[in-house]
Simulated scan of single mutants.
Amino acid sequence: MVTRIITGIVLIAAVIAWLFFADFPIFTMGALFIYMVGAYELGPIFKFKQRYLFLFLAVAAAVCCFVIAPPGEFVSGHIPPVVKYIIALSIPLWIGVVPLIKAYPHKSSWYENKVICAILGLLMLVPFLEGLLVLRATDIALDANTGAYLVLAVMALVWAADSGAYFAGVFFGKNKLIPAVSPKKTREGLYGGLILAFAALILFMHLGLFSVYADSSPALIASGIIAIVFSVIGDLLESMIKRLGGVKDSGKIFPGHGGMLDRIDSQLAAVPLFLSVNWLISGNLA
């Protein structure tokens, strides 16, 4: 428990420093580090025979994205349409994994197909990476911290959902959500998480943390709610593939907290879905 608390404090301090004290190139390097560690952990979970094969694929995908649309362009406020489309791939991905999660463990033959696993893994990671960079670059020429608050706000929606789910589950949890995938999650916990996260969304809107993504209130509310709901799907997807891979934690990089994927599983869905749904509803996707 002591190790877990100390690691948590260090992680919080590192995230704050990364968001508010690192310039955009350093932030990009940090995002790439998160991305690559996540890819390194996914390979063994998907049981690729060559441990580094999926990492190589992920690096190649990131290089292609950066060549097509260098992140430096985001600083000028111009987000190329191709980047928006890459991030928007998160919409069919996260909708598509819902039936897989519901069908587990009875229909999991897809896991034996490494092409499907590779595509799934890349679609989990690449839109998330691009989404982080787009969020952080928002209005950076006008105020260096606007994007930092924006990233923090989107991530905090997930943290609020996790916290609300934990406490509601502890005090009121009776009915299991999807026991085959995550035995500890309950429907009551889910409802508690959604309520607290929605309250956080309203608070962050009042505080003006969403920058240009608050120009359309309907788009902001819808994208926030979708990000919150599907953050739970992100958590469940990681739990499912870990069960299929026969592992408890995705890695050991964080003592007491497991691996990188264990820390970002919900964010993998929330970050790109927040952006893509907002663009879609506000008419700014193209």
Results as ranks from 00 to 15, higher is better:
8 G>H: 10
11 L>W: 05
11 L>A: 15
12 I>E: 10
12 I>W: 12
12 I>L: 15
15 V>W: 04
19 L>D: 11
20 F>L: 07
26 I>C: 07
29 M>H: 08
30 G>L: 05
37 V>L: 13
39 A>Y: 00
41 E>I: 03
42 L>E: 11
47 K>Q: 15
48 F>L: 08
52 Y>T: 14
54 F>A: 02
56 F>P: 01
58 A>F: 11
60 A>N: 00
62 A>C: 12
64 C>S: 12
67 V>H: 02
67 V>C: 05
68 I>R: 06
71 P>K: 01
72 G>S: 12
82 V>Y: 01
92 P>S: 05
92 P>G: 04
92 P>C: 03
93 L>R: 04
94 W>E: 02
97 V>C: 03
100 L>Y: 07
100 L>P: 02
101 I>Y: 03
102 K>E: 11
105 P>D: 06
106 H>P: 00
112 E>M: 07
112 E>H: 10
115 V>T: 13
115 V>E: 02
117 C>L: 11
117 C>R: 11
121 G>E: 05
123 L>D: 04
125 L>E: 02
126 V>H: 09
126 V>C: 08
129 L>Q: 15
131 G>H: 05
135 L>F: 08
139 D>G: 09
140 I>R: 12
141 A>C: 04
144 A>F: 15
147 G>C: 12
148 A>G: 07
151 V>C: 15
151 V>Y: 05
151 V>R: 05
152 L>H: 01
152 L>P: 02
157 L>M: 12
159 W>Y: 03
167 F>Y: 15
169 G>V: 07
173 G>M: 09
176 K>S: 04
177 L>K: 08
178 I>L: 14
182 S>H: 09
183 P>F: 14
187 R>Q: 13
188 E>V: 14
195 I>T: 12
196 L>S: 04
199 A>S: 15
200 A>I: 03
201 L>C: 13
201 L>G: 13
203 L>M: 08
206 H>R: 14
214 A>Q: 08
215 D>E: 11
216 S>F: 10
220 L>Q: 10
221 I>M: 10
222 A>M: 07
228 I>H: 06
234 G>M: 00
236 L>P: 09
236 L>E: 13
240 M>C: 11
249 D>L: 10
257 H>I: 01
260 M>Q: 00
260 M>C: 03
264 I>N: 00
266 S>L: 08
269 A>H: 04
269 A>S: 08
269 A>L: 04
271 V>L: 13
274 F>T: 07
275 L>I: 00
277 V>M: 00
280 L>Y: 03
281 I>V: 08
282 S>W: 02
